[in-house]
Amino acid sequence: AVAAPIEIKFSHVVAENTPKGQMALKFKALVEERLAGKVEVAVFPSSQLFGDNKVLEAMLLGDVQLAAPSLSKLQKYTKQLQIFDLPFLFKDMKSVERFQQGPDGQKLLSSLESKGLVGLGYLHNGMKQLSASNPLKVPADAAGRKFRIMTSDVLQAQFEAIDAVPLKKPFSEVFTLLQTQAIDGQENTWSNIYSKKFFEVQPFITESNHGVLDYLVVTSAEFWMSLDKELQVEVKKALDDAIAYGNGIAAEKASEDKQKIIDSKRSEVVNLTDAERQQWVTAMKPVWAQFEEEIGADLIKAAEASNQ
């Protein structure tokens, strides 16, 4: 008799037409093509199965096999991943890619193992920009203003470093709060600013590229170890190909969405001169030292080195 195919449930929180959604579908297609009869993939988009906060727990319980939460969500599993939130660490997505594919980035994938998770690969969203109800040219423009952040100690420190007020608010409330200016601004990637319609309620977006917002494709160690070596290699290969495909879409979408925002004329894009940008760097960089102990000085150095 033939053994029943192994089922992989891939749960994510975004729509199917996003880079992540496309990547998941690509993975499903590749697996079905290459591993027909051996592995089956079911994709559950739009938080149908679990939200980002609970999906990792469900994975540990063995009810989900793949997920791609944002790196910030993983910080409670390993402090080292906080590195991706450090402001002005990476110059652009190329540097991010170099670091992630390099030896240190790859080693980080296994940093979750003690918590029962295995990182399988990095998936891009893009570089973060600062949007606000007033133009942000220099850090002083942000002083005293309220910014919505995702739960992350680094991001909190980052806004405190420029004397701004970081606020944690559930995503469901953010749009209204920005619209009514109860909160002044937020940080996000071009594609999120576009898809979440933040550009409609944020008249100014500073192209700061001050940080990176990426995802980590994870699985549970228990599930991963249960696959035989050959299958592991095949699945990993399909995933790598799907991630490359998704990253391609993400890069395209970042520039497309930026253009769409400019074309909408709802929001003005603020460009920084080198001198202005340097002011932001100077103001925010002390955050590195704050987290050096938790992340590891060597790792930060390695990341910085990926900028050439």
């Binding site: 608010k169 409330e173 209204t176 709060l177 009514t180 200016q181 109860a182």
Partner: peptide, 8 residues
């Protein structure tokens, strides 16, 4: 809500 003080 509409005066920019609070969410619903």
């Amino acid at each position: 809500i509409y005066g920019g003080i609070a969410s619903p």
